Simulated scan of single mutants.
Amino acid sequence: MNIEEFRDYCLSMNGVTEKTPFEKFTHRFDSLLVFYVLDHMFCMVDMDDFTSVSFRSTNEEIERISE
């Protein structure tokens, strides 16, 4: 999966929006793409270095996703 496919997948979920909220702090964070549902952050990824993804979830959901 590449960053475009991942982005499309996230945005296909009901109510999901995306922002790059950290670019105003420093250029170092320009490439951080954050996905939100109901204005709550649930996923963050670096668009320039798509080697990992950070999720906000329960421990049970993280285990299920990891499998």
Score class of each variant (00 low, 15 high):
residue 1 M to F: 00
residue 1 M to L: 00
residue 2 N to V: 01
residue 2 N to Y: 01
residue 2 N to I: 00
residue 3 I to V: 14
residue 3 I to H: 14
residue 3 I to M: 14
residue 4 E to I: 06
residue 5 E to I: 02
residue 5 E to V: 03
residue 5 E to T: 08
residue 5 E to C: 01
residue 6 F to M: 11
residue 6 F to S: 11
residue 8 D to G: 04
residue 8 D to T: 08
residue 9 Y to S: 07
residue 9 Y to L: 12
residue 10 C to E: 13
residue 10 C to D: 03
residue 10 C to Q: 15
residue 10 C to I: 06
residue 10 C to H: 04
residue 11 L to C: 08
residue 11 L to A: 07
residue 12 S to D: 08
residue 12 S to T: 02
residue 12 S to L: 03
residue 13 M to N: 13
residue 14 N to Y: 05
residue 14 N to P: 00
residue 14 N to R: 06
residue 14 N to F: 00
residue 15 G to A: 05
residue 15 G to P: 00
residue 16 V to Q: 06
residue 16 V to F: 03
residue 16 V to Y: 06
residue 16 V to R: 11
residue 16 V to M: 10
residue 16 V to I: 12
residue 17 T to W: 02
residue 18 E to L: 02
residue 18 E to K: 08
residue 18 E to Q: 10
residue 18 E to D: 07
residue 18 E to M: 05
residue 19 K to G: 03
residue 20 T to K: 12
residue 20 T to G: 01
residue 20 T to S: 07
residue 20 T to E: 11
residue 21 P to W: 05
residue 22 F to T: 12
residue 22 F to P: 03
residue 23 E to V: 01
residue 23 E to I: 03
residue 23 E to K: 14
residue 24 K to Q: 13
residue 25 F to N: 11
residue 25 F to L: 07
residue 25 F to H: 13
residue 25 F to K: 09
residue 26 T to I: 07
residue 27 H to V: 01
residue 27 H to K: 14
residue 27 H to T: 12
residue 28 R to P: 00
residue 28 R to F: 08
residue 29 F to C: 10
residue 29 F to I: 05
residue 31 S to P: 01
residue 31 S to C: 04
residue 32 L to K: 14
residue 32 L to Y: 14
residue 32 L to F: 08
residue 34 V to S: 15
residue 35 F to V: 09
residue 35 F to S: 10
residue 37 V to L: 02
residue 38 L to F: 02
residue 38 L to R: 10
residue 39 D to K: 15
residue 39 D to H: 09
residue 40 H to V: 03
residue 41 M to H: 06
residue 41 M to T: 03
residue 42 F to Y: 15
residue 45 V to D: 08
residue 45 V to G: 05
residue 45 V to C: 06
residue 46 D to H: 09
residue 46 D to A: 04
residue 48 D to N: 15
residue 49 D to E: 15
residue 50 F to R: 12
residue 52 S to L: 02
residue 52 S to Q: 14
residue 52 S to A: 09
residue 52 S to Y: 10
residue 53 V to Y: 01
residue 53 V to N: 06
residue 54 S to R: 12
residue 54 S to D: 11
residue 55 F to A: 06
residue 55 F to K: 04
residue 56 R to I: 05
residue 57 S to E: 06
residue 58 T to D: 10
residue 58 T to I: 01
residue 59 N to C: 05
residue 60 E to G: 07
residue 61 E to A: 06
residue 63 E to I: 13
residue 64 R to N: 08
residue 65 I to H: 07
residue 65 I to D: 06
residue 65 I to P: 05
residue 65 I to N: 04
residue 66 S to G: 05
residue 66 S to H: 09
residue 67 E to L: 04
